[in-house]
């Protein structure tokens, strides 16, 4: 299974699923499927999505679950 932080980045940028879908050329439903982990994107789509948010692909998708946001923030505060 591929884990992702699509919904986090989308909320941060204030984009709707329709907005993201239009930018990468897919049906808005497909963004929902990706966010829920019901569909694993192709390399091409993953690269397009990373480009939309201006992040690396591995910041958006991962084979291992992402750490909860609160935990990541706490960790960055300690550093």
């Amino acid at each position: 299974m591929i884990h992702n932080r699509l919904s986090v980045f989308r909320a941060e940028r204030g984009l709707s699923r329709k907005d993201v879908a239009e930018k990468v050329g897919v049906n808005p439903q497909t963004i929902g499927y990706l966010e829920r982990g019901d569909y694993a994107p192709s390399v091409e789509l993953a690269l397009k999505l990373a480009a939309v948010f201006g992040v690396r692909v591995e910041d958006l998708f991962s084979l291992a679950p992402f750490a909860p946001l609160a935990k990541a923030l706490r960790k960055s505060g300690e550093a």
Binding site: V26, N27, Q29, T30, Y33
Partner: peptide, 8 residues
């Protein structure tokens, strides 16, 4: 007319 998920 379909995206990659729809095609799959």
């Amino acid at each position: 007319q379909l995206d990659e998920r729809e095609r799959f």
